[in-house]
Design a protein around this nucleic acid. Sequence first.
DNA 1: CTGTCTGATATAGACAGCCTACATATAGAC
DNA 2: GTCTATATGTAGGCTGTCTATATCAGACAG
Lengths: 110, 110
Amino acid sequence: MNPDVLRGHMDALLLSVLEREPLHGYAIIEALQERSGGALNVPTGTVYPALRRLERIGYLASEWATVGGRKRRTYRLTDAGKKQLEGERSAWREFTNVIGGVLRANAVSR
Amino acid sequence: MNPDVLRGHMDALLLSVLEREPLHGYAIIEALQERSGGALNVPTGTVYPALRRLERIGYLASEWATVGGRKRRTYRLTDAGKKQLEGERSAWREFTNVIGGVLRANAVSR
DNA sequence: CTGTCTGATATAGACAGCCTACATATAGAC
DNA sequence: GTCTATATGTAGGCTGTCTATATCAGACAG
């Protein structure tokens, strides 16, 4: 998939994946891969900065944990994050309607 | 709509709007507004450079015309552009399936 | 005949955010 | 001991969208 086509949708993806349960960065990457049927291979250089940004904004909160000798920073949705996720979902619907509508304008009718 | 969420989809929009008939930049902007029900207000600083880029790549060709004393550069799809548009459409479908799928993962089932 | 609006094209520079590449470290398998 | 999987992180590049600005012609109000 074209690289920066994800631009502007990373937040929605991350928040969505954290809705079910708190996860650490590495597990988030795996979850995205899994849920997309392998289509989403988001690099660590994208995910970790994004998670920090979302925490700074207040949509996520994190805690350190040590599991099997390895350190993990586990992120969870805050209340603001849940609210934001709803916003992201409706923005996504509007976005796909608008762009999809324009793209279909010629292809379908006529 | 969030500004740079269009990133990576401008090409598809421009090619799609030019599929029906050749248009000049200003008319393309109006056409996008019209077809999106007013949702797409793409600034000239986005459209004109994008059109030039698409011409440089070979997806568009342009000619100057003078209508009522005003100069217009009219763009039309090349054969490569038509082919590219098909590619953009299927990429769009895949894109929406993948992201939409992840976003719906929690919202729907369960 | 001046000012302002619409139509029309264009460029420079800012900005955001995704990506590549790299650095670091532990656990477990072999 | 070396390799792979697990795990987090930063620096810098890239690219394309946006903001702001400039220019010009015609129309039309006043």
